[in-house]
Design a protein around this nucleic acid. Structure first.
Lengths: 208, 208
DNA sequence: AACACAGCGTAACTTATGTTACGCTATCCC
DNA sequence: GGGATAGCGTAACATAAGTTACGCTGTGTT
């Protein structure tokens, strides 16, 4: 929780605003795999990531699932903001990719902050910008890449977001996030291994 | 241009704000097929659609293209806002699907309006919400639907947006927007015709 | 040790989609 | 009319991806 202040000041927030956010928010821990925001219940808080790593998943009504992008330390879920302000809900699920520490900010103050603090407006719009970019990146992957390229992109994204060359996931889990089947993932990973791009072990993939 | 006032008041804008927008903006006509916002030049204005129909396209560096969604009367391009506020550019192109009348609003006033007018804040965030929804809808189509379903969805979208059962496009044009090939579109359209979902004529598709 | 099971590799097959090629016809231009 | 061309239909084939099935091997349990 120590880096809350760091993160807030890193965003150029005014002292007064920093104090308000510290006062009004609450701390929340989520352990790896835990659900932060479930799709249908419109939460009244937006999550600011202090440490750890979250992932956004899109789900459809058939049980299909799709990884969209990660939320790293210092970032927030822009969609939660509109979601709350407009009261609508989207079929998005936010899950902890690693054990994470969050700062939950109640929505009812957001409108006032946007009005009052230029730094907060900048923060909100920068978040939107970043989320749009990420969403478009995800869309590009699906629309323009073949599965092997998508898979590699996924692995590299994970490496970048976690800061580790080692990915501890099963083929089944990867398959689910890419909305394909385990066999396909195994096939393509094997090929990536033959091409010396990765190294495989049980429950573990190392990126070279 | 007559409906500018209608649209502004329809958004619940304060009289003062309506006057400001009318004063500071400028009218712009785009004829069908014309480019409204080109990807790389960060425009300093955001477009408000008064009449007609715009479409957003995503383009990658290989010349691939992908239809995202439509902007109808009363709507604005939320991505332009972040784009301008943050100075970054996205590889999005906005093209007139029909002859359209726009009201171009210079960005430098937007921050002040957000600060001052609650109705404008609502408008901006509603726009974001809508655009996120549309983007996610586009994503769903690509991720979860097969090409024939995507094609049907595309046709229905076009019908809804244009308010007409008749679509004047060639198979080639449709193929480009769905990022597939002409032959595939012809094949699937033929099937849709056999299934009595559409009727085909030269340069023209009728939805049943 | 014996067992159950998760995780992975692989083959064989099906289906969806992309590609190439070619023919037909309406339309436009001269 | 004759030629050029755009738009479309169709076949034949190539490739990517999904599916089913089965075997192997660690790991954990009893």
């Amino acid at each position: 929780m120590d880096n809350l202040e760091e993160i807030l000041e890193g965003n150029g927030f005014e002292k007064e605003l920093v104090a308000e956010i510290k006062n009004i928010g609450r701390s929340k821990r989520v352990s790896s795999g835990g659900v932060v925001v479930s799709a249908d219940l419109g939460s009244e808080e937006i999550p600011l990531v202090l440490s750890g790593l979250l992932k956004l998943l899109r789900k459809d009504d058939q049980g299909n699932e799709l990884f969209l992008y990660h939320l790293q330390s210092g970032e927030t879920c822009a969609m939660s903001i509109t979601c709350c302000l407009e009261g609508k809900t989207q079929d998005i699920t936010v899950v902890a990719e690693e054990d994470s520490q969050l700062w939950m900010i109640p929505m009812h103050t957001v409108d006032r902050w946007i009005q009052r603090y230029k730094s907060f407006r900048k923060f909100v719009f920068r978040s939107y910008q970043e989320r749009f970019d990420e969403l478009l990146g995800a869309l590009d992957g699906i629309a323009f890449l073949k599965m092997d390229e998508r898979l590699m992109k996924y692995l590299l994204d994970l490496k970048q977001a976690s800061g580790s060359f080692v990915i501890k996931k099963t083929h089944q889990e990867i398959a689910k996030e890419l909305n394909t089947s385990r066999v396909v993932v195994s096939r393509l990973l094997k090929q990536l291994e033959r091409d010396d791009k990765i190294e495989q072990h049980r429950n573990r993939i190392e990126i070279l």
